[in-house]
Design a protein around this nucleic acid. Structure first.
Lengths: 244, 244
DNA sequence: CGTTAGGTTGAGCAATATCAAATTCGGTGG
DNA sequence: CCACCGAATTTGATATTGCTCAACCTAACG
């Protein structure tokens, strides 16, 4: 499992083209910072992630452990925020890294509590927690094949929700190494898993762009949605506790 | 990885002796419910976990997926609460199960915001999130050996914090099957891993009681604390609720 | 063109799962 | 006290999955 080092690439890299989020509902997006791939997201004096809104590009939160192992905790996509929501939450204390060129805005969500469109800190926290739970299930009880499918579906869903998906296709700037560190697998195995997915005609992937070819079959194959029964549903179920 | 079924034991079982939490700081603990091992924790009409304080016994939150696989998301120990803190959080939507006899109280924490001892909903959420992140790291980037150590250390730390640890020893009512479902491993492998830990004289485990023999070496061996650098450090914590 | 990061391949191996059959252990009933 | 029962643990054998190592390839870039 050791799964060695990853070259601590804080190097300068050519800014890949990244589509800025077009959403007009995420107002106040006066771009204030620009990060290049490999740069850390800004932090406050207390070493928390500084409150920001990502308006373009992908980032990730991660943790580093002995032996150069790295575990990616989750991805931050355009429209997502960091360092918002109740302060001092562990997620805001973890490391975070730009995976592509990233554009940040200081915009605080829901400054005025009558901003109907923007999500509230509470809603953000809920969504983040849902993602964490899904990640746990993937890592704990799914095969490499299932994990990969499951993550791709989650990313598609999130991107589609903010209008960054073109049908079943979307920009996919993740390196296989990043994918590996997110899914708890080795790069080589990720590579072979992706090959299998292509061979099975479940997706097309090249040039940093992916197309999911059969959503229904993909979802079946990885139990998408089924597992996390904690996806809202609301259903009267009065499990009345027996006495004693 | 499939890791088959677990007999859906909703059967009646002999109530094991469980030490009630002695803490006097967790007041208002008028025992209202008693669950036997295997029973589900009570839920609200909206299928959320009902707000409760666990005053004795162990429970766990979990998710079930295809093929009878189960992933345990975390353990609930005496002094912990469920269904508290911002409502409708995914954790409160997951399934939860009593692992031993469990005693529940309706006590709400921090009803009056001047209750100095009890943790606030925000503090609860923070601690829960920290546990989730640790769990992700364990599952994603640690070996079976490391995972097991890491979880034992976490449990010891939590139990010690509420006075339920007797030095480095504590009641440990978890079945190897439960351990397996928490750590994403097979029962057989958990068994062999525990044997190794015993052989290495890192712990003694029998009769539902465990003693950790060399905390420092254990912590080294699993990078305890090191990984999750997001363990609180700066204190500032102005739990000032952002506008919802 | 040389360099480089990322992707691909093959071979061998280590970690972990699966299956099936003991064995141990705490009750329980005789 | 003893025989028995089911749950939990343990064991051995074997199968799979996923890891490591070491090349090699390819496209992008200066």
């Amino acid at each position: 499992m050791p799964n060695r080092s990853w070259p601590n690439s804080t190097h300068a890299a050519p800014p890949p083209t990244v589509a800025p989020i077009g959403s007009s509902s995420l107002a106040a997006a006066e771009a204030l910072e620009n990060l290049r791939p490999g740069q850390s997201l800004p932090r406050t004096a207390h070493d928390l992630l500084a409150p920001r809104l990502i308006t373009a590009g992908w980032a990730c939160r991660y943790v580093t452990l002995q032996g150069g192992r790295r575990q990616i905790l989750g991805f931050v996509l355009p429209g997502d925020t960091i360092g918002q929501s109740p302060p001092d939450r562990p997620l805001n204390r973890a490391q975070a890294l730009a995976l592509t060129q990233v554009r940040l805005s200081h915009a605080r969500l829901r400054l005025s509590s009558d901003d109907r469109d923007a999500p509230s800190p509470t809603e953000i926290a809920i969504e983040e927690e849902r993602q964490l739970l899904d990640h746990i299930v993937r890592l704990g009880r799914q095969t490499a094949y299932e994990r990969t499918l499951h993550l791709l579906l989650e990313l598609h869903e999130r991107l589609a929700a903010i209008g960054l998906a073109d049908g079943e296709a979307f920009e996919f700037p993740l390196t296989q190494e990043v994918l590996a560190d997110a899914l708890g697998l080795s790069v080589v195995h990720i590579n072979r898993t992706l090959q299998r997915l292509r061979r099975e005609r479940l997706l097309v992937l090249h040039h940093g762009r992916v197309t999911l070819l059969e959503l229904p079959r993909m979802k079946e194959n990885c139990d998408y949605g089924g597992a996390a029964a904690m996806r809202a549903s609301a259903k009267i179920l009065v499990t009345q506790p027996l006495p004693d």
